[in-house]
Amino acid sequence: MTFRRVFTAAPEDIDELGHVNNAVWVRWVQEIAVAHWEAVAPPEHRLAYVWVVVRHEIDYRGNVAVGERVTGETWVPDPPRGARFDRRVRFAGADGRVKVEAVTSWALLDRATGRLLRIRPEVAAPFLA
C-alpha cells in the first residue's frame, strides 16, 4: 500500500546553498513513515509498539528551494525479516521529477519494555496490502 504526503520547503529547511538541507530530507523520511504507521495501524498496535530506524540509504537527485512542494510517497515492498523491514520513500517535485529516493530499515520494539520484537503477520499486513 502506497502512502502519500505533501511537504513544502520552509525557510528554516533551507541550507546555505539555497535548497532543502540533507538533514531535513532525513526528517521528512521519518515523518512520512510515522504518518503511514499512524494512518494504517490499528490503535492497539500504535499503543503497544514503536518503530526505530536502523539504517537510512538516501540518494539525492535534485534540489528543492524555499516554497517549493514535493510529494512524498512510501511503501513497504517486501514482507518483514524477523524484527525488521525495509521501507521505500520517494519525493517528487511538481514536475514529477524525483528529487530524493531512500531505503530505510526499521525495527519493531515493544513500547513498554523497549525490547526488539519479531514482526507478526497482523502487524505487517496493513503495509503489505
Rank of each mutant, 00 (worst) to 15 (best):
R61A: 13
G67C: 14
V6E: 12
A107K: 01
V103S: 03
D110M: 07
L47A: 14
G82H: 01
T8S: 10
V24P: 02
L117D: 11
G18Y: 09
F3Y: 04
P77Q: 10
V103C: 11
D78G: 06
T2Y: 11
V34S: 07
A92W: 09
R90F: 08
T71M: 06
E38T: 00
R81I: 04
R87S: 01
P11K: 07
E57H: 02
V89I: 13
R5S: 05
V66Y: 03
V20N: 08
E101S: 12
V29F: 15
I58T: 02
V70W: 05
D86W: 04
V76I: 05
T104E: 03
A94M: 14
H45G: 04
E68T: 10
V76L: 06
V100A: 09
R84F: 11
I119G: 04
T2G: 04
W106F: 04
F91H: 05
V40S: 01
A92S: 14
V103R: 08
D95G: 08
V29S: 12
G82N: 00
V100H: 10
V70C: 14
G62Y: 10
V6D: 12
R84V: 06
V52Y: 08
N22Q: 11
R118E: 13
A125P: 03
A23M: 13
V26S: 07
E57G: 00
D59H: 13
I119L: 07
G67D: 07
R69C: 15
A112H: 12
R5V: 05
W25G: 00
A94F: 03
L17K: 10
R61I: 07
A65G: 12
H45E: 10
G93R: 11
A83C: 08
R87T: 05
V6G: 09
V20F: 02
A107H: 00
T74W: 02
E38Y: 06
I119V: 04
V26Q: 07
T8H: 11
R27I: 01
W106E: 06
V34K: 15
H19V: 01
R61L: 15
E122D: 14
L47W: 15
E12H: 15
H36A: 01
P43M: 00
R120P: 07
D110Q: 03
V66Q: 12
Y60S: 10
G67W: 08
W25A: 01
L117M: 15
R118K: 13
F3K: 02
H36N: 01
E16R: 10
V98M: 11
V6K: 09
A23S: 13
R118H: 09
K99L: 11
A129E: 15
A41V: 00
P77S: 11
V29P: 02
V89P: 01
Y60D: 14
V89E: 09
W75K: 06
W51E: 06
P80W: 02
T113Q: 11
G96H: 12
R84N: 06
E44N: 15
R81Q: 08
G18V: 02
V24M: 02
R87Q: 04
L109F: 08
G62F: 10
E38Q: 08
M1V: 03
A39C: 03
A102D: 04
E73R: 15
F7E: 04
I14L: 11
V76C: 07
L128N: 00
